[in-house]
Design a protein around this nucleic acid. Structure first.
Lengths: 343, 343
DNA sequence: TTTAGCACTCAATTCCTTCGAGTGCTAATC
DNA sequence: GATTAGCACTCGAAGGAATTGAGTGCTAAA
């Protein structure tokens, strides 16, 4: 079913207006607000748009609100890219310039930037360590039988895991094992380190093959159970919107967004795409049926390693959010690049 | 002003009832609910208690609600310690048994346990690294000019900080410096390491005195700007209570509780005391004027290094919360002790 | 000193009315 | 044939009056 030019214009006006006001848009308001047709004409078109499924009426004597189908169309075809003002760009840039204390800090700062500038809730996924290449592994003795494993990858990501160590391995040997593993597996992807290469251990490591094997598998597995996987920011921003003036809705939303495992899965899935826009019931999460999620991926050395995004009510300002995400994506890749400077 | 026995009994009954129901308590209800005096008598006593400042009336034709003064009295003198059921104790213990992946994980688990069992919001402060003794320092090269500093203390706490390194220091020298510092400062308190001992550097380190000095001060300073200082859990639990059925109140609360710096300061202050109970306006935070905060401290090697607590509405179940905190305190110190096993 | 009794208060609830934004339909107009 | 003016109609929101009932203070009797 094709929509003619006029229907498109009217639909767009309705979506734009509803994004601003959150209240149903009537034909008269549209007609007065710069549309070149009378309210009656608009009314007829709106009736058509409703039967086509693009609009809905909360009740007979109210205006129309856009359906998810309308948002979909809006995002895919009608939306005009918003332009960020210089101030905003500068503001955004500021969040990145001052945080050069490592990947973690930058990504946390990203989340904060996103939530503060969009006024929605921001999510940032920590980079997937599996695709990164090992730079350095260091085992640090804690107590007899326990050690701390610190992993550094080419993306600068580090991760600490407490591991069990056979009691007969002393501090010096831990150090030697660290150096040996670093030398042997340097520049291998984390995900392949444990699976493929464990068998090829030679020299000193062969005596400790069992330990090394369990160590490496532990490192990969601990990543998925790690708590820093997702950084959230601005969760309470949503309470500003009339959609969440009901505490129960707010609670449902907050509870959903704090399921970090789910959020991680969502972002991970999205990280293979440059951008995604998921509207209302397109979301898998129960609690996001009235929300939209917009994400962008970020890369290190050309490989997508993670994604970040924004959650807002379905009537979110998609154009603006996408512009911001694009801007952040650029900033982020620049900063991450500076951490990795291939030698 | 002394309260006679009967006034105390009535006051306690009102507080107990109000903690449960959150709605003003009337004389009739009390009289029917097991009090041995008629509603009229109770009414007279209530009028007295009101003029004494222990009760307040939302409006003329409503029952009475306890004032902060009443809660204070209740907590200090009237409350009977609640007894945790065996199931609850077991449940609590379960949170600790399974999380032996390091201090961080245990404390996060503590927060979760507290919030889930109390149904309030839980806060746990990460241990103050300054009072702990250095076990191991390891500098791991990242890129030329940058390195990752990993600090391990006697409490098992570790912390990563990205630091700048003069370009002429290579990986081998970083390793040597790490070992030298570890050897020299092992078992010194972190807080004294940088201030006192920097001058006494001898041997190899003296050539790099400038670098080592900046490194050590950076380590101590970075702790205070660290983001993991406070672990929050169950922030949305508060939305269950009628006190927060108004979204604005909820928002104020959530915004306050997410000011991690403030929360850290609050907990840090409380960590010198075994237990604290701070009621309503006794709280410094604007957003906690209708909340109470109950905390307990935890120790490592006999030194208090941090605290944890619960935030709830002023009508929280103080007796129960205190019992739970006490139980958690015991569990926590046992588990932390197991991390430190002095060799 | 305690309590029964009673008049009084006031928030909460319910029911009604009014108001107005918005609609659909029809007939006149371009 | 498309557009628009006009009009009756719908229905939620807002406001107001009446009702209800839990709770009080006060007084007088036990």
């Amino acid at each position: 079913m094709e929509l003619d030019q006029r229907k498109l214009q009217i639909l767009r006006a309705i979506v734009d207006e509803y994004i601003l006001s959150a209240s149903p848009v009537g034909s008269k308001a549209l007609s007065k607000g710069g549309m070149k047709w009378s309210s009656a004409t608009i009314r007829n078109e709106m009736a058509d748009l409703e039967t086509l499924g693009y609009l809905a009426q909360p009740h007979t004597s109210a205006g129309r609100i856009p359906s998810e189908k309308a948002y979909r169309l809006y995002v895919d075809q009608m939306m005009q890219r918003a332009h960020l003002s210089d101030e905003e760009s500068k503001l955004l840039y500021g969040y990145f310039r001052d945080h050069v204390h490592g990947v973690d800090a930058v990504l946390r700062s990203t989340a904060k930037a996103l939530s503060e500038i969009t006024h929605y809730t921001a999510l940032v996924m920590m980079p997937d360590i599996g695709v990164n290449r090992l730079r350095h592994l260091q085992l640090i003795p804690l107590t007899p039988g326990k050690a701390l494993a610190v992993v550094v990858t080419d993306a600068g990501v580090s991760q600490n895991t407490v591991i069990d160590v056979p009691e007969d391995i002393g501090p010096e040997e831990l150090d030697r094992i660290s150096k040996a593993i670093t030398a042997r597996f340097s520049d291998c992807r984390m995900s392949t380190v444990s699976s493929k290469l464990v068998r090829e251990l030679g020299g000193e490591l062969s005596q400790r093959a069992g330990f090394v094997e369990s160590l490496l598998s532990r490192l990969c597995e601990s990543q998925s159970s790690d708590r820093h996987m997702v950084e959230l920011s601005g969760t309470t921003n949503m309470l500003e919107y009339p959609e969440y003036s009901d505490v129960n809705k707010a609670k449902t939303f907050l509870a959903t967004v704090e399921q970090k495992d789910d959020m991680y899965r969502m972002l991970k899935k999205a990280s293979s795409m440059e951008f995604t826009v998921t509207i209302g019931s397109e979301n898998e999460q129960e609690g996001f049926q009235d929300c939209s999620v917009v994400t962008a991926s970020y890369r290190v050395n050309g490989t997508p390693v993670g994604s970040f995004g924004v959650i807002g009510p379905t009537r979110m300002d998609y154009a603006r959010v996408l512009s911001i995400l694009k801007n952040v994506q650029t900033n982020l890749s620049t900063v991450l690049q500076s951490f990795l400077k291939e030698e």
